[in-house]
Computed example of a mutant assay.
Amino acid sequence: MIRSKLAAVATAGAMVLGGVIAGAGTASASPRDTADAAGPTSAGDCLYVLNTSGYRTTAARADACNIGASDVLGAVQICQIRLWNTEVGEYVARVACNAASD
């Protein structure tokens, strides 16, 4: 999850140094890198949004993110409702569940 995000930044070849953007070379993403970014890390992306928004990972929140990443009809809405039930704010729940479904 985080590795694939860091790899995407490194692959883009840009580094931010003191507010200045400098090219750091170019590289192309391998098919494996792009598959990992769109694959089973979706529930992890949901948890990443929650964690970086100040919400701890709990079993109920992990379950909600797993549902959001599934192919179940209405998965994003079910994910949001379950996160709301664990006292996650509406906006953060929406962003997290959308991250899970991507």
Rank of each mutant, 00 (worst) to 15 (best):
S30F: 08
V88F: 04
I2G: 06
E87D: 14
N51T: 11
A64S: 05
A12E: 09
A12R: 13
L6M: 09
K5Y: 07
I81Y: 04
V88W: 05
D45R: 13
R61E: 05
L47W: 00
A75G: 07
A64E: 02
A96N: 05
I67H: 04
G25L: 06
E87Q: 13
T34R: 14
A99R: 09
R56Q: 13
D63Y: 04
C46R: 02
N66I: 08
M1T: 10
R94F: 11
S28A: 14
P40N: 11
A12W: 04
N51L: 12
A59W: 00
R32W: 02
S42I: 00
G19F: 08
E90D: 14
V20R: 15
A60W: 00
A38P: 00
R82K: 15
C46T: 01
A69G: 10
S28V: 14
Y48R: 15
T58A: 11
A59M: 05
T34C: 07
Q80Y: 03
T41Y: 04
P40K: 12
M15A: 15
S42R: 06
G74Q: 05
T52N: 10
G39Q: 11
N66K: 15
Q77C: 02
N66T: 10
T26C: 12
A37E: 03
S42K: 07
A100M: 08
V20K: 15
R94P: 00
A24T: 13
T41H: 03
S4P: 00
V16Y: 01
A60C: 04
T41F: 02
I81D: 08
K5A: 12
S30Y: 02
G39H: 08
V20C: 09
A100Y: 04
A37I: 10
T57L: 06
A100Q: 06
Q77S: 14
M1G: 14
M15W: 07
R82F: 05
A99W: 01
R94C: 01
A12Q: 11
A22P: 00
P31T: 12
A24K: 11
A75R: 15
A60G: 08
A43H: 04
T52Y: 05
S70R: 07
T11C: 12
A22E: 11
D63Q: 12
A14D: 01
W84S: 15
R82T: 05
A29M: 13
T34F: 07
A35V: 06
L73Q: 06
G68D: 03
S53N: 13
S4W: 02
I21G: 10
D71R: 13
N85F: 05
R82L: 13
G18M: 09
R82A: 15
V76P: 00
D102W: 06
A62I: 00
A35F: 03
A37M: 08
A10Y: 08
A43W: 01
I21Y: 07
A27L: 09
V92I: 15
P31Q: 10
V76A: 14
N98R: 10
G18A: 13
A35S: 09
V95Q: 01
D63R: 14
Q77N: 13
C46E: 01
A24R: 14
C79W: 02
R32V: 14
E87S: 15
S53A: 15
M1D: 09
S4I: 09
G19I: 12
D45A: 11
V76I: 15
M15N: 08
W84V: 09
V9F: 09
T58Q: 03
T34I: 15
K5I: 09
A59E: 08
A29D: 02
T86M: 06
A69N: 07
A37W: 02
G23Y: 03
K5T: 04
T34N: 07
